[in-house]
Lab assay of single mutants.
Amino acid sequence: MQRVNMIMAESPGLITICLLGYLLSAECTVFLDHENANKILNRPKRYNSGKLEEFVQGNLERECMEEKCSFEEAREVFENTERTTEFWKQYVDGDQCESNPCLNGGSCKDDINSYECWCPFGFEGKNCELDVTCNIKNGRCEQFCKNSADNKVVCSCTEGYRLAENQKSCEPAVPFPCGRVSVSQTSKLTRAETVFPDVDYVNSTEAETILDNITQSTQSFNDFTRVVGGEDAKPGQFPWQVVLNGKVDAFCGGSIVNEKWIVTAAHCVETGVKITVVAGEHNIEETEHTEQKRNVIRIIPHHNYNAAINKYNHDIALLELDEPLVLNSYVTPICIADKEYTNIFLKFGSGYVSGWGRVFHKGRSALVLQYLRVPLVDRATCLRSTKFTIYNNMFCAGFHEGGRDSCQGDSGGPHVTEVEGTSFLTGIISWGEECAMKGKYGIYTKVSRYVNWIKEKTKLT
């Protein structure tokens, strides 16, 4: 034993070699072989497995989906700052455009905790909710729209109204504003409101030439003092309507412009014939205590009207009353817009006519005020429907199939267009061939041609 100890002390290297040989010859039971080890760690190889990531292109799944990435790591994937920024906006807080917040056709661009709407022409605001041009839906104005110097929408209202708090709607500024039905039992019968379409306001006024200088022999019209197929109006439903009495009662109609003036057809009036105007009328054979009678003290036909040349060209006249009318729910003026808007309103496509005229061709006159909704007829169809001249200051309205029309005794009465609950004068009943005849239409004086003249002559002093 002493000898062994001496050998170990003198030859430590020998001992180490012996131990190493023993270990190498022993069977290893701690580690699995290569094949079995792979069965336990069965993990798919990654895209760049075996390579240094710093030297390969980034992978979106590896960089940002398996674990949260930084902007720089995302930049490695896209290799483009702009594309990385677009991805980053949604990656950080989701897609803010998912709810489609942009209105009126706006395009949404996502941002971090926010979004941006790219608005089409005519709109602005956070969600493109603000109209900035009158060309689109009248700028959301209830009545009139004008573009300011910086191309912003400025709404306005006709006389007797003021802008509401929203700067879009119009509200009454006087007790009985024009064009409004205020009798409670008839307010439910107000005709369907007309909503502004998209309009090209630059070209809204037709490029028409008034044929002022045409000389033409007097034409022989049949029954051209021209509501057939209409309905009984309720008291106060058309408070701007008046009836004219002269040699015979209810020979023509008219509309209240203001307390002192009536507008009617020029062919209705004769110099030297006494005319009485009755406002607030409903049943011409009954006294309903809503009527107001006034005498006409002055007749002003349009300066281009000449019955000797043509009885229905420039067929418009103004009547001055001896005493002002007292405005109330049964006696209310009709609204008159400017030339541009009167023309736009007419193009809405349908209007209402009213009167006490004959209820059928050569038949009896109506006792109760009649009204009828009539569609506008395109000019080409209008011209083809008659052998008589249709001037540019006239328009056609009615039904091709016949059966409904204005008729004798309705002449001078109103053709009105309702705009968001307020009625505007767009025409004056003038003439036609018979009444409600198939293929024939009622012919009306186009008020847009005469609004400046009306307003100039009827100013209240």
Results as ranks from 00 to 15, higher is better:
Y115H: 06
T16I: 10
C141V: 00
V257R: 00
N452P: 11
K51Y: 07
V296G: 02
I262L: 04
K146T: 15
T389M: 08
R191W: 09
G403K: 13
K126Q: 13
V242E: 01
E320N: 03
G94A: 12
E98P: 04
D93M: 11
Q219I: 14
F144N: 00
S423E: 03
A233R: 05
P172A: 11
I428L: 10
K146A: 13
F55C: 04
S114R: 12
A317T: 04
H400I: 11
T81F: 09
V183M: 10
C108W: 02
A37N: 02
R449L: 15
H415F: 15
V153Y: 08
I112D: 11
L327R: 06
S411F: 15
G246W: 05
Y391P: 15
D315F: 00
G403D: 15
S217P: 14
N306G: 04
T342W: 01
C28I: 03
H303A: 08
Y444P: 01
T194C: 05
S114M: 06
V277N: 00
D249M: 09
K152D: 11
Q219L: 07
C117S: 02
I429W: 09
A164R: 09
T386C: 07
K362S: 11
I297G: 04
S70W: 01
L319G: 03
D405F: 11
D198N: 15
D93I: 10
I214A: 13
H267G: 05
Y371F: 12
G236H: 09
F221P: 15
N38Y: 12
F399G: 09
M394R: 03
P44F: 07
E124Q: 11
N258P: 00
D315A: 02
P12E: 12
S169Y: 06
C382D: 01
C157D: 01
E72C: 02
D33R: 10
P44T: 15
V183F: 10
P197E: 07
S148Y: 07
R83I: 15
K339M: 13
T342V: 03
P301T: 10
V374N: 02
D198R: 11
F360W: 15
N295D: 10
G122P: 12
G409I: 10
E27M: 05
D410T: 15
S169F: 06
C396E: 01
L52W: 06
F221D: 14
G21P: 07
E98M: 09
P120K: 07
T16Q: 11
V368Q: 15
I256R: 00
R298K: 12
V374D: 01
A233D: 05
A149N: 13
Q90L: 09
G253P: 08
C28P: 08
S169M: 09
F388P: 06
M437D: 11
H361P: 12
G409H: 11
D249P: 09
W261Q: 01
E320Y: 03
N48S: 03
Y47D: 08
